[in-house]
């Protein structure tokens, strides 16, 4: 181990202990388990700094935080899944004695033997750990994929396709002339507002039109088609830029939140 590493590690340990003692002292009288509390707050601050150190480079503190994070979070989901889905939803539908064991309230509709099917499918899925009959685990996977493919087929056909068409449609035929249709009816160029409106409607129409041309796969993008496709990708890029810029402020406020934790909850400076 290099000398610098040892010095840094020693410094971190000393700072950690000092913070622990000081925090525990500060919590004394406020909380029952002030030693554990002091440790936890210090540890949270340590982890915050450890993750931030990733900005400099990969280092042992980041590795520590990362590996701990992975283990704890995986267990967290496992526990949540077990208690909320298996115990709360499945058990009371399968057996009254199991429900009594877990002390979950029984369901008004009573037992439901259809729920043995997902249990069997779940067990089939676990069979993939076996080399010989692992192939049988494709059945439950096929069940999940099939069910959700059908569900998504309808959902997106309705919401992403038909609704988008109809929302491009409705203002066209309406009497109040908003949307693309406003173009021709607003040919009066005297007012700037109308000019902007007109340009906007053109841009919306061309944007959708050229965007769809860009996503047209089975034709070479040459000539007029190529020009349309190029305008399409330009408009897409402007959109992505706008969305990029829009996100920036949100991300900065997250950083401010973390810095507030370090300076207020841990160091109590602000």
């Amino acid at each position: 181990m290099r000398k610098v590493t040892i010095i840094v590690m020693a410094a971190v340990i000393v700072l950690f202990l000092a913070s622990w003692i000081l925090k525990a002292g500060a919590f004394q009288g406020e909380h029952d388990h002030y030693i554990i509390r002091g440790f936890l707050v210090t540890f949270a601050a340590f982890l915050t700094l450890a993750v931030m150190s990733f900005l400099y480079q990969d280092n042992p503190y980041y590795k520590f935080a990362e590996h701990l994070f992975v283990g704890v979070s995986a267990a967290f989901w496992m526990c949540m899944g077990f208690w909320t889905t298996i115990v709360q939803n499945l058990v009371p539908r399968l057996s009254t004695s199991l429900a009594d064991f877990f002390e979950v309230p029984q369901r008004a509709e009573g037992l439901n033997f259809f729920f043995y099917t997902p249990v069997i499918l779940g067990i089939l899925l676990l069979l993939r750990l076996s080399r010989k009959i692992g192939w049988i685990s494709r059945w439950p996977l096929a069940f999940i994929v099939g069910t959700t493919a059908g569900l998504n087929f309808i959902r997106y056909l309705r919401s992403d396709f038909i609704k988008q068409i109809s929302s491009t449609f409705v203002p066209l035929l309406g009497r109040d002339w908003e949307g693309i249709g406003a173009f021709f009816s607003n040919l009066d160029l005297s007012a700037t507002g109308q000019l902007v409106m007109m340009v906007s409607n053109w841009v919306i129409f061309l944007g959708v039109f050229c965007g769809l041309i860009y996503f047209y796969f089975s034709r070479e993008h040459k000539g007029v088609f190529g020009a349309g496709s190029r305008v399409g990708i330009w408009i897409l890029m402007i959109t992505f830029g706008a969305s990029f810029g829009y996100t920036v402020m949100g991300r900065i406020s997250l950083l401010v939140g973390r810095i507030t934790f370090l300076f207020r909850d841990w160091l109590e400076l602000i």
Binding site: D160, G207, G211, T239, S243
Partner: peptide, 15 residues
């Protein structure tokens, strides 16, 4: 305006 147009094109395509 451009955002709405491009989003609509993407959404129709993705759909």
């Amino acid at each position: 305006v451009p955002n709405l147009a491009a989003q609509r094109a993407i959404i129709i395509g993705v759909g």
